[in-house]
Design a protein around this nucleic acid. Structure first.
Lengths: 224, 224
DNA sequence: TAGATTGTTAATCGATTAACAATC
DNA sequence: TAGATTGTTAATCGATTAACAATC
């Protein structure tokens, strides 16, 4: 077997937790703290310290036994691991209410993401600036994707338009789609889709709330 | 040991997938289809059919071997399982750009969620209507939560305000918080928090894109 | 009947948690 | 030194996948 560096990426649950740690670390850093232990982060988030330690280990950070980790190093390692040390430019397609909200979200900077431009099919919106970003016509998308070397798109169009726009994005050479629509997109295998399913989030909340209510009913049976 | 109905809720990954199935089922239903197999749903989503079958089984649905499931029954079962057969009223706190986007999102109806009112600390916003919902002052939150029997809140305030508002919500008797801020809230154990972490979603996309790029580099080494 | 699919039981896989020596 | 924490190896837990009889 050929000796290949198999950069086995961290487990997905780990990848999802790392940005959460990062937010805490940045906060501590701003307050002037220099060292942090996995125990501290774990307590802060209601996790087990061993889980935090295992997660952090994936970034290649090395800590000091009895002390913990140097915060600036840790921030650096996590950012590098997530590829957030360099800015990624992305196009946003669909300047509706959600698209507008995302265009106005200043936090993406901290995740190494920059929305380079927005696109919309509505001629009324084209030409406008939303939160300082130009809204361009869909026709320009294909050309600009190549010229600006854009690989990522944020999809915030209405459900009916989602698949059609996704096809356009794929044809334009987009490699990663952050899909905020409720549509499960059909794309070729080399294109990555990350679905941000509000319905799944709400489902978890609904089910947990119902369960909690059931439990409290059991311990305090209704008196009325 | 006392014989208690232990409604063991489905695994969380199952809960997250059910709304995705639901969307497909509703679509099929609108097109007049009456039966569906787990195989079909699985193919549609790029999953294994056994996983879909297992997931659906948690809702209590019973299928016909060789045929599949009756779509209307399945829709009903999933909705009941998620508690989406009855509408849940929720308050939205923080009428900024994301709050405004969510106020305008018509899809929540389909998830049994109704935003009953919005709240904001900014006197400029109070009194306005956004997408037909009144924006009320924060001071009214405590009183109205009790009077309207609201149990759920959607938190879309700026990060700095998040913990303070969460405390207010808890004091008002809110039992479930859908947290769109990047802050990890500290709440008492009986209060459920569902964090919708955009940063985690983006992290997954970033890491998968980097991995895909690495793979294509290996097979097509750069020629320039 | 033949083909397809369900539902159940068992096997596998991967992530979380536990245990503990090494180290500051 | 004593207390705390890391990093590693092993054990546990839970979800996914496989296998297959039952059924339409």
């Amino acid at each position: 077997m050929v000796e290949t560096h198999d950069f086995k990426t961290a487990p997905l649950p780990t990848v999802r937790r790392l940005p959460v740690y990062l937010a805490i670390l940045r906060d501590l850093h701003e307050r002037g703290t220099e060292q942090v232990s996995a125990t501290y982060i774990a307590t802060e988030l209601g996790l087990e310290s061993i889980q935090v330690r295992k997660d952090l280990a994936h970034t290649g950070i090395v800590g000091k036994p009895g002390v913990g980790f140097t915060i600036v190093d840790l921030i650096e390692k996590i950012e590098a691991f997530l590829g957030w040390d360099n800015t990624t430019d992305a196009f946003l397609v669909g300047a509706g209410s959600l698209g507008t909200a995302l265009l106005g979200y200043t936090g993406f900077k901290r995740y190494g993401l920059n929305i380079a431009a927005a696109f919309d099919a509505d001629p009324e919106k084209v030409g406008q600036s939303i939160h300082g970003k130009r809204v361009l016509p869909m026709e320009k998308l294909g050309d600009l994707t190549g010229r600006m070397h854009i690989h990522m798109a944020i999809l915030t169009v209405p459900a009916e338009a989602a698949q059609g726009v996704a096809d356009t994005l794929v044809a334009a050479g987009i490699r990663a789609i952050w899909n905020f629509t409720a549509v499960s997109l059909k794309v070729p295998p080399q294109v990555i889709v990350q679905n941000t399913e509000l319905s799944s989030e709400l489902a978890v909340l609904s089910v947990m709330l119902a369960e909690a209510r059931r439990k409290s009913l059991h311990s305090h049976p209704p008196s009325c």
